[in-house]
Computed example of a mutant assay.
Amino acid sequence: MKDETSSRDHVGSLERGLAVMEILARHSAGMTLTEMAEEAGLTRAGARRFLLTLATSGYATQSGRLFSLSPRLLTVARTWLGGASLWTFAVPIMQEVAEQFDEACNAAVLSGEDVVYVARIPGRRILSVALDVGTRLPAYCTSMGRVLLSGLAADALGTLLAGAKIDRRTPKTITDRALLAKVIDRARTDGFAIVDEELELGLRSIAVPISDRTRRIVGAINVSTQSARFSVEAMKHEILPVLRKAKGRVEEFFLV
């Protein structure tokens, strides 16, 4: 009965229409009616009806014999993405990273002197730092904080560091403001940051920035681990390439 109901509710013409849209999306230079009929497995009459319907509704344009998708589809995508935090769509990608290394993968944005966690996939190894979505940590001694700070203009960064509360969290914490500025500048040049036991002894993390379509840094993702699990060099050679691939996938949501 369930299969019969599903079949009865299935709108085949809508499915074929969506397939036509997907095919048009793969042919940015446009397609003729004949080309669409062949690729979609439709008759010329059927392809014509779908293409003209898309054109009439504003989802496609016609120039001579060629049909192309219109920018209206981007408006629909932006409306959909705007209905939920873009970081929601990053979670499955972060989950893959976390599972590959059996470590935590986190995402954060900059809020004043702090980073605020906006997504988190916990690792199996327990650390004393209690982290969750909404957690705030000082930007100056965290890997995500440093790549986020690297997106600030020089004068804005100088002002922030001058007024920031900077404490020595561990014997390794960098507290000299001039040295911090250099470390952040290095993160800007390298495109990543590693923090080695500056927030907590035994905790290392590596982060990469997330940029929007204007190339402005809007967030960061990282992998955090116990120092006994990964050396700094191992993080560069093993974790960083995976993080960079994840960065590219996450940024697709911010480029719409």
Rank of each mutant, 00 (worst) to 15 (best):
A187S: 14
V11P: 02
L51R: 01
A130T: 14
I184A: 01
A181C: 10
G134I: 05
T170D: 11
G151C: 11
A104V: 06
T56V: 13
V11C: 14
D196I: 02
Y140A: 03
L255C: 13
M1K: 12
L180K: 05
A164F: 09
A37Q: 02
L152S: 03
F253N: 07
P171M: 04
I217V: 15
R244V: 10
S6A: 14
A207Y: 04
F67L: 00
E22T: 07
D114V: 06
L14G: 02
L179A: 14
H10V: 11
G158Y: 04
V133G: 06
S211D: 10
A47C: 07
L149N: 03
A162Y: 09
I23V: 12
A154W: 10
R244S: 11
T43M: 02
R169L: 15
L255N: 14
D185N: 14
V11W: 12
R216I: 13
I206N: 00
L240R: 04
F67S: 00
H27S: 14
A98I: 09
T159L: 14
L201A: 13
S111F: 08
R124M: 11
R168W: 03
T34W: 07
T88C: 07
T189Q: 14
V133M: 06
C105S: 15
E96M: 09
T170Y: 06
L243N: 07
G41N: 03
T159R: 15
L127H: 13
V218R: 06
L110G: 09
V97D: 03
F254I: 06
F89T: 06
T189H: 13
A108W: 04
P71V: 01
P92C: 03
I217F: 12
K2R: 10
R125V: 12
A37T: 03
F101W: 01
D102R: 13
A40D: 08
D176K: 10
L255Q: 15
V91L: 15
S7L: 15
L86M: 08
L52G: 04
N222R: 10
G248I: 03
G248V: 04
R48Q: 15
W87P: 00
T34V: 12
S6P: 07
A60D: 00
R249D: 09
W80M: 14
I23M: 09
L199Q: 12
V223L: 12
A107K: 00
L81N: 07
A108C: 12
H237W: 11
R213K: 10
L24S: 00
L157D: 10
K172N: 15
L152I: 03
E38M: 09
A107H: 01
A84G: 11
T135D: 11
A246T: 05
A25E: 09
A84N: 09
G158K: 09
L148M: 09
V208K: 08
E113W: 12
V91E: 13
W87S: 02
V129W: 07
L180I: 07
R229N: 13
